[in-house]
Each structure stands twice: as C-alpha cells, then as structure tokens.
Design a protein around this nucleic acid. Structure first.
Lengths: 196, 196
DNA sequence: CCTCTCAAGATACGAACGTATCAATGACAC
DNA sequence: GTGTCATTGATACGTTCGTATCTTGAGAGG
C-alpha cells in the first residue's frame, strides 16, 4: 500500500497547495492544519510531511504558487482582449475583483495571507515586490489610453488600485453589488480618460 | 492570594480586551491564546475564563470594543478641527491611515479580524453596519465642501474610502511613505473640490 | 536476484490548546 | 461573628497540534 501508484512526485506539492487554498478560502487559514490539508488533498498526513520540510514552508509555497497562478490567469484573460489601452485598463482593474469562483476563492485566500503577513516577514516578502508593478502598469495604461488635462496618471493609479481592491473586498462581504462596483469603475475611467 | 485586591470588576473585561489588541497587533490573532492573553493582561488564565463565557465571545468583545474606541477617538480628533467641510473631509480620510502608534495598532488588529470575518459570521456582522455610513459621510462632506462640475460625490466617496484604506495598508507594510500617501490624498481632494 | 532509493503508511511523542473542576479569599450585609 | 456572593488560584482533562520515528512497498541499476 505505501507505494506510489503514479510516478509523478512533481504534482504532489501542487495538489497539496490547492488543498490549502480551498481550506483557507472556505474555513480560514487557522483551519489549515496538516491533518486537514492532507484530508482535503486526499493523501495521508505523512505525504504532506514528506513533500515539505515544515508547515511554514508549506504555507509559503501555497501563497507563492497562488500568486503566480493569479498573475498567469490574469495575463491570459487580458491578453485575449486585444491592444486597446482603454479596454486593457478596464480589464486590469476588473482582474482585482472577485467576479468568478476562481477569483473569489483567490481573493479570500490572499486576504487571509495578507493579514498574517503583517506579523510574518517571510509572507510579507511575497506581497512586497520591487517597486509597484501593478500601479505602474495602471498608470502606463492610463497614459496610453489618453487622459484628460490636469490628470496625474500616477496619482490616479495609486487610488484606483487601492480603491478597486477595497471594492472587491466589499463584494466578498456582499456589502456592495457587482453592478454598483462596475458602475463606480466606469465613472472613474470616464472621468480620467479623454475620449468618451 | 486568590482574592480581588481591587473592587473593580468592570475594568477587567476592558483590560483583557486591550491585551488581545496588543497580541493581535504585534504577533497576530492566531497567537491570542487564552494563556497568552492572560499573561499580557497581567492576570491568571482563570480570570479570563471567568469574565468571558468562551474564547469566541472574548474575541468578539475585543473587536467590538476596539471599533467603538476607534470611532470615539476619530470623532474627538475631527470635532476639534472646527466646521470647515474641506478640513473635516481631509481629517476623516486621514483617520483611516496609521498615522500614530494608536492607529497603527488598531489597523493591524482590524486587518487581522477582517480576514477572520470572511469565515466567521459573528465577526462579519461587526464589519457590516446598516448601509455605508462612512461612505455616506464622505459623500456629504464632499458636497458640503463644494465640488467641481460633473463630479459625482457618491462615486468619489466610494473610491476614496476604499483607496485611502488601501494606502493605509501599504503604509503598514512600508510599501509607501506617509508623505506620498498624503500627497495622493491632496491631489484627489484638489481634483474633486472646487475652490483651491 | 539483489539492493538501493524514493515515496508513503502507521504510529507515537511532547507541547499547547480551550475548558472544567474544586477550593479559597475578601468584601459586605445583617 | 457569620453567611453569602463575586472573584480568583491551582490544577487537571481531553483534544489537537506539528513533527519524529520506524517500517513498508515499488521500481531502477547492476
């Protein structure tokens, strides 16, 4: 019984990380114990122990993997929309919202990790990239889409990224409706960009 | 030894709640065990057990008390500034930022609770007031301060509240400087309001 | 056929968790 | 004095935690 039916030791870590995501999203990060993770992944606790040196490395790996996954999915969705800067800008902002089950789960997990990152430097490092790539991207898209006079693309991007993230969290709590959030985003894009 | 040296059973709950705040802010909510809370509060674990029916009620009480405390402090600070709507608006937004140790601790604690509220209805209820009082207040202040043509106070308030909160979280992570955040807020207030 | 190595099962250990139990203390009414 | 009641000390119970240990199975190389 204790032998590998599949010759793939590579997908095991991924499989376990996905179990962490589901538990963190549905029951919270504090419920992600080794035994619960193993049960959710459909493996024995020993398998979790074998593939990660300790729980801290496991949680870190799950966060890093989810972040890469999000970025990959986001780029795919956005790249399929062409090259119109205004369309890309809108899509980039909407990527921050929990508009489907995948992004809803991801945002819940990331929120749990973010809170823990305030007291865990290893997790904090994942959230602290060099510079502000997302804000820079949004600012560049604003400039490329053409902005109205006396608009500062950088300052607009700074508030937009934080603001849309906040609206996304409100969506998680059902404190706002999706339609209202999208209307707020449209208002501000119309306000910032020149051509209607 | 096991007797009350002070005849004040009223402040005990408060004293214990403050211990929760310090632990949650400095080490995270998952470190707020009954024994740690008791040690931080300078009492025996039995005292914690006696004044709260269980840990869930304790954590809920600590959250509710901190929220009231924040609102009280915020109102005090803002009320001391007079009645100029523009000044009040700026102060209301800055109240969301971790500009001193008190607010820095509070924001860290609230962030930890917020994450947990995603999987805990009792905690979520604390964050879900009726309507959106903060957004409504900001919108009212924008209108009172006088807004430029074709500005929607409600939509501006929606993005401002979320955006400034996001900037505050960036401050916690030292991802932005305080001066940069304040400059971003100034930019948007100048953009929204009519008179320079 | 043998052996070496990777992967996993089975189990256990010490620590820490939330909570329960029982006794003891001090303040106070009478 | 002497009960009474609110509060606290001291201790223990059962559970769950992360992790360590030992063993077993499968496939590859010689």
């Amino acid at each position: 019984m204790p032998a590998p039916a599949e010759p793939e030791p590579a997908g095991r870590r991924r499989q376990i990380a996905e179990a962490v995501w589901r538990i963190a999203a549905e029951r919270g990060l504090q419920m992600a114990t080794v035994r619960e993770i193993a049960a959710e992944a459909g493996v024995s606790p020993r398998v979790v122990q074998y593939h990660f040196t300790d729980k801290h490395h496991l949680l870190l790996y799950a966060l890093q993997t989810l972040q890469k996954e999000n970025e990959r999915h986001g780029r795919q969705r956005i790249a399929a929309l062409g090259h119109d800067p205004r369309v890309l800008l809108r899509a980039t902002l909407e990527e921050l919202l929990p508009l489907d089950d995948q992004r809803r789960m991801s945002l819940r997990v990331m929120t749990a990790y973010y809170a823990r990152s305030l007291t865990d430097p290893a997790l904090a490092a994942v959230f602290l990239h060099e510079g502000s790539p997302l804000e820079d991207l949004v600012a560049a898209l604003i400039s490329a889409a053409g902005l109205r006079p006396s608009i500062d693309a950088g300052r607009e991007a700074d508030l937009l990224v934080g603001g849309v993230s906040g609206l996304g969290l409100d969506l998680l709590h059902r404190r706002r409706t999706r339609a209202d959030v999208l209307r707020t985003i449209d208002y501000h894009l119309n306000r910032i960009l020149s051509s209607g």
